[in-house]
């Protein structure tokens, strides 16, 4: 039984997405799954991150195709709006399912 359980845990760990292993990136994706779009400044406020760190995490998610960005001007100031892509939503759901499954297996 313990061997079977260990196998199940190993399988589930494989389903975890390394990209979402970082807490900020997971937070960004969950927030974008809940809301249609969030601006850079709103994400910064919610996550309590520095500009540099948030920008780096957003870029990683964008490169992997998890999020997309639209830039617009508001009162002559640039505003970046982020949205979760279909691919990002699927990846997030799979990751959250794996997390829940792991908790159930370990408890």
């Amino acid at each position: 039984m313990p061997a079977e359980r260990s196998e199940q845990i190993a399988d589930t760990l494989n389903n975890l997405n390394k990209l979402l292993g970082h807490r900020s990136r997971l937070g960004i994706c969950v927030l974008l799954a809940r809301h249609t779009a969030l601006s850079f400044s709103r994400l910064k406020e919610l996550l309590d991150e520095t500009d540099g760190n948030l920008g780096a995490q957003l870029r990683k998610l964008e490169i992997e195709g998890f999020i997309e960005v639209n830039k617009e001007f508001r009162n002559r100031k640039p505003v970046s709006w982020y949205r979760l892509t279909k691919n990002g939503r699927l990846g997030l759901m799979k990751h959250l399912d794996a997390m829940t499954h792991l908790i159930n297996l370990k408890s």
Binding site: L26, R34, H35
Partner: peptide
């Protein structure tokens, strides 16, 4: 994992 889930839940609540 539980900490991470708690963290994202608090983020959603805040938003």
């Amino acid at each position: 994992i539980e900490e991470d889930l708690g963290y994202v839940k608090s983020l959603v609540d805040k938003s």
